[in-house]
């Protein structure tokens, strides 16, 4: 079981990496911040606070995931351990899958540590998250991690060194998180009016941050805010079928990015 071995090694290397701890500290601080935000306000369903929290997580987590994991891949190239590993009878796919699993475990551990800390701190201070909120935030974060980890693998496979990975990671983050509506609005202003909605929907499927966000808002009961245009969507998202579609879409995303990453890696 090469995948297993690689994943274990990845977890080990991952937690010897000082970057992991700095991100862990950052995320713990961040989740304590979320705790303070929510303790001042009402949290059930989709409110100003929940919306803000989702957005804060959307700013931080994808960037963290992409940087940490793509660095781990480029490190293999820079430090020459891949050359060593490739002398063994091991396929690229099991190598990258192992990396994916290991990194997922590392990142989830980091996030759990942050939320766990704020959960416990909240209990001690008597101003805790509601159980459902904490679980919701955790699930939301894990979804984001798993999806962006696929992209991170791709970045790591393409770039030659950390600098390239950093540049690419930050650009993708900027593109998907910050510039996304601006770019779409400007590009879609050139297409006929009737194309806007279908193209926008298609584009949304191509941005994991967006579809995770929309699905989460719908699950929080805020789906109607997207207007009558998306009534059917939101209706689905709130039903068991919606969960199924969401999981399928996410799996499709992860496997597509991983597949391309493997191809790119093999060509080198």
């Amino acid at each position: 079981m090469h995948i297993n071995l690689i994943a274990k090694r990845e977890v080990k290397v991952g937690f010897r990496n000082p970057w992991s701890y700095s991100f862990m500290a950052l995320f713990s601080l961040f989740s304590l911040g979320l705790l303070i935000i929510q303790s001042q306000s009402y949290m059930k369903g989709y409110t100003y606070t929940t919306g803000t929290m989702l957005n804060l997580i959307l700013y931080l987590l994808p960037l963290m995931t992409m940087l940490l994991s793509s660095f781990s891949l480029t490190a293999e190239k820079e430090e020459g351990s891949w050359q060593l590993l490739s002398t063994y009878a091991m396929t690229t796919s099991s190598f990258l899958l192992g990396k994916y699993l290991g990194q997922a475990l590392v990142l989830i551990a980091i996030v759990s540590f942050g939320y766990g800390l704020s959960g416990v701190a909240g209990m001690l201070l008597g101003k805790s998250f509601a159980f459902s909120t904490l679980l919701f935030l955790l699930a939301f974060s894990i979804c984001l991690i798993l999806l962006f980890l696929g992209i991170a693998m791709l970045i790591g496979a393409i770039s030659k060194n950390r600098w390239q990975a950093l540049t690419m990671g930050v650009s993708i983050w900027f593109f998907y998180i910050l510039a996304w509506p601006t770019l779409l609005i400007s590009v879609l202003s050139f297409v006929p009016y009737t194309w806007i909605k279908p193209l926008l929907q298609l584009a949304t499927f191509l941005n994991p941050a967006e579809f995770v966000r929309i699905f989460s808002v719908a699950r929080l009961g805020g789906g109607s805010i997207f207007g009558p245009e998306y009534y059917k969507w939101v209706y689905w998202a709130d039903s068991p079928l919606g969960d199924l579609i969401f999981v399928a879409l996410s799996l499709l995303w992860i496997s597509a990015t991983l597949f391309i990453a493997i191809r790119v890696w093999e060509r080198r």
Binding site: Q38, S39, S41, Y42, M43, K44, I108, A109, I110, S112, F113, Y115, G116, L117, S118, G119, V120, A121, G122, M123, L124, G126, K127, S128, F129, A130, F131, T133, L134, L135, L138
Partner: peptide, 19 residues
């Protein structure tokens, strides 16, 4: 919000120990 601290606290503890 209703601060039902225990549930979240225990979940937090589990997460902390797990990680």
């Amino acid at each position: 919000g209703e601060t039902s601290g225990w549930g979240a606290g225990i979940l937090g503890l589990i997460l902390l120990i797990g990680s």
